[in-house]
């Protein structure tokens, strides 16, 4: 397989790999390292790539396993917290500033979720995969995915409510 062919396969979903890695590892540098590692692993298996029926799901599973291993290993002890700025369009400046604050807050809430919930929420609500794909990527049963997703969404809502009621957000 030529490099250009490989890149053509990988480019559509490499951002998704990166975002999943960042969701789990939090730090931008760590996530970039992880994504590079995964892409290199994929490239080293590029001869076999034709035999996978869903390369994207396969790559996602690799990313998940890689990041969970990373988290388990000692290296996870010195992860850094990195905050990014997110834009929200179509609101007045004042609202936008407030929204930016609370959007950041949602990100921080998500950092506190258990890994399983983080991943399901990321894959469903950010990447918009359907349940079958998520089952395949996370090696989970459909009911388990649904339960985890519901719990994750409710957990975010609950934390957000607390914040909202304190009047800080």
């Amino acid at each position: 397989m030529q490099q250009s062919d490989f890149l053509k396969i990988v480019t559509p979903f490499q951002d998704k790999l990166y975002r999943l890695a960042k969701r789990l590892l939090v730090s931008r540098e760590e996530a970039e390292d992880a994504t590079q590692e995964i892409l290199l692993k994929l490239w080293s298996k590029s001869k076999a790539i034709g035999s996978y029926n869903n390369v994207e799901a396969f790559a996602m599973t690799m990313t998940k396993n890689f990041c969970l291993d990373r988290l388990k290993s000692k290296q996870a002890g010195n992860l850094k917290l990195v905050h990014s700025n997110y834009k929200e369009e179509g609101t007045s400046l004042q609202k936008q500033v407030e929204a930016n604050d609370s959007v950041d807050w949602v990100q921080r809430i998500m950092e506190e979720l258990p890994e399983q919930q983080k991943m399901v929420l990321q894959l469903r609500d950010v990447e918009e995969y359907d349940f079958e794909e998520i089952c395949e990527m996370l090696e989970m049963k459909p009911t388990a995915v649904r339960v985890t997703l519901s719990r994750a969404r409710k957990a975010v809502r609950e934390k957000l409510m607390e914040k909202h009621n304190y009047g800080i957000g």
């Binding site: 490099q3 490989f6 890149l7 990988v10 490499q14 951002d15 790999l17 990166y18 975002r19 960042k22 970039e32 390292d33 994504t35 590079q36 892409l39 290199l40 490239w43 990014s84 997110y86 834009k87 929200e88 929204a99 609370s102 959007v103 949602v106 990100q107 998500m110 929420l121 990321q122 609500d125 950010v126 990447e127």
Partner: peptide, 17 residues
């Protein structure tokens, strides 16, 4: 808002193939 905007983050690293 966050779930919608989180999708816009891009992988900026190089792939040293």
């Amino acid at each position: 808002g966050y779930l919608n905007s989180a999708k816009s983050e891009r992988f900026t690293g190089k792939v040293p193939l």
